[in-house]
Design a protein around this nucleic acid. Structure first.
Lengths: 133, 133
DNA sequence: CAAATATAGTCGTCTTAGCAAATATGTATG
DNA sequence: CATACATATTTGCTAAGACGACTATATTTG
């Protein structure tokens, strides 16, 4: 089907804790880079670099919105890869770190102003949380 | 569920072409190391190393049989990982290299004597191929 | 210009290939 | 039964390459 799909590269992209945390946070919604930085509590260039790896592997897609960049998961054309990615996302939800991240994201969406790095940051479009304070 | 399961390590183990080829050859049967060496046409220590990586990740299990070591895939306890591994194996079958390897393995099972490195090598137990020549 | 994000450069660390040596088993020999 | 040797496989070791962290700098947009 896909001539250019590379299983090895695909797994390489998934074989990193930081990238798994990013994917878990995205889930099925679009997230702004600034949220990743805030929630993972890691330096911005590091987040950016890992997002670049995911981009290169074709797993995520960026969208520019003014100053902000939003990322969302791009389900692979390759049927097998799509199943693997979905199963991975499902499995991640069982892990403590991932649950903690998800909870933190919800909080941040509710009141971005309370987080240093999120002054005036855009609220994730599909976030099912309370309105901005 | 499993405290010791590590998704990152699991994907790292899968993120290598040589290891994917080994897994594809094993499929659901037990294979002797000497077949891997012959079919991948790579140096034996290299094969051994990659088998060690797979062992460390708990993906394969060795069995000694006299001089020969046989390896087989060990389905992970972790339900998600098992699904991912099964889907991976299924997807590999669509790739040319993997199909070629599988075909070569079948040939080697039919007449091991014709391969330099397989003089007197054991035939994979569950190999559904013709008798040894 | 300021803010958000991406990229480049440098460094330390991890992974891998390749070779040599070690280990484990089997067989032959005394 | 002990020894020596052959075969199959694993494991140290070292150099090369890839990767991640960190800092500084560049790019894009308001």
């Amino acid at each position: 089907m896909k001539q250019t799909f590379n299983m090895e590269l695909f797994f390489q992209a998934l074989a990193d804790q930081t990238r798994l945390r990013l994917l878990n946070l995205m889930g099925d919604k679009e997230i702004c880079v600034c949220y990743f930085v805030e929630i993972l509590d890691q330096l911005q260039p590091k987040i950016s670099r890992h997002l670049a790896y995911l981009r290169r592997a074709g797993i995520v897609e960026p969208r520019r919105d003014g100053k902000w960049m939003h990322y969302r998961i791009l389900m692979p054309q390759h049927a097998g890869a799509a199943i693997i990615l979905q199963q991975t996302l499902a499995s991640l939800k069982d892990e403590r770190v991932m649950q903690s991240d998800t909870k933190k994201l919800l909080k941040a969406c509710c009141s971005p102003a309370k987080f240093n790095g999120l002054q005036g940051a855009p609220i994730p479009l599909t976030a099912a949380c309370c309105e901005r304070g």
